[in-house]
Design a protein around this nucleic acid. Sequence first.
RNA 1: GGCGCGGUAGCCAAGUGGUAAGGCGGAGGUCUGCAAAACCUUUAUUCAUCGGUUCAAAUCCGAUCCGCGCCU
Length: 316
Amino acid sequence: MNPSACNAQAYFLVGPTAAGKTTVAQRLAESMGADILSADSMLVYQGMNIGTAKPSAAEQSRVRYWGLDLVEPSESFSVARFIQEARRCFESARERGVTVIIAGGTGLYIKALLNGLDELPDPSPEIRARWQAVLERDGVEGLRTALAARNPAWLQVLADPSNSRRLMRALELMDSGFSEPPQSWGKRSRESWVTGLEVPRDVLIQRIELRVNEMYAAGLLNETQALMARYGALSETAAGAIGYAEAMSCLKGTLSRAAAVQLTIQRTRQLAKRQMTWFRHQMRVFWVPGAGIDLDALVAKVAEDWMQHGPQSVVC
RNA sequence: GGCGCGGUAGCCAAGUGGUAAGGCGGAGGUCUGCAAAACCUUUAUUCAUCGGUUCAAAUCCGAUCCGCGCCU
């Protein structure tokens, strides 16, 4: 923990994409007069609105949002920058005496808020580029060999030694002077309660199909074209965003519109599944049924759970 | 009707006598600075059907069914 840590409290609402988090959080924020901190790795990109299901201008005019439109889609982002935004959010909320609702589907960001983030350096572009080159030349094996040669103990700590991203991160930290993996690695957030929206798989799939079709009807292709015209190349993360990657292929002519829609639906389903796996295992969630119930009742149920468990501690 | 080619998992597909590769999809997982990422595990008691040859058949032979192409 660092000296400038803000020890704040907030209400959490998590769940897979298309479960209805935004709508419920919006309603509760309006009635509580609360701010909303979005914990979503794609909502941070300016101009990416339709495909990320960003809260509308009308919604944003009624509630103060944090975590939206933080960078241009040509830039890269990180959890560390998200935590910086969280600090700004809590500072402001404290000054104004306002409650904070944290809503989002990016498990890593939620967990960082719950557990705090170690004081570690951001990887420098040069160091990352160097290991990226090793990966491209020698593959994962090359990274693993490098790590094994420098620090075999660290390699053993890694849960998945075939994961190029984790190998690179370990090597980057060693380049920055760290000789051991941080203690916090592998720790779960079992102390705090977060509220989650749970929607039966078949219902969620229907919602996803509907939503992707609505995105195309609302002009996802035009939005994507405008982004490409303005920025040329998007950052790796933004370019790979579900919906946008397929829309770009469609605009380039390598994918038909129907195929782009289908592929977007498929990737969204896969995302929802991974999100559920994360929330089920990495933190303690009180699940509220998010389907087969009218919105008023659902909002009331979430509010009831928040009252019961109280606001949860945030470390940032 | 004749001739040719083909039929292997939900989909694509390798295998042409020695006991069913791989990819996609699905399911289950991992997780502290790219996370909408990356990675891991798992998924066909059986190869269109029936019969035959053989120690041994998805593989060879025969019949039947289905698909595609060409010819009449």
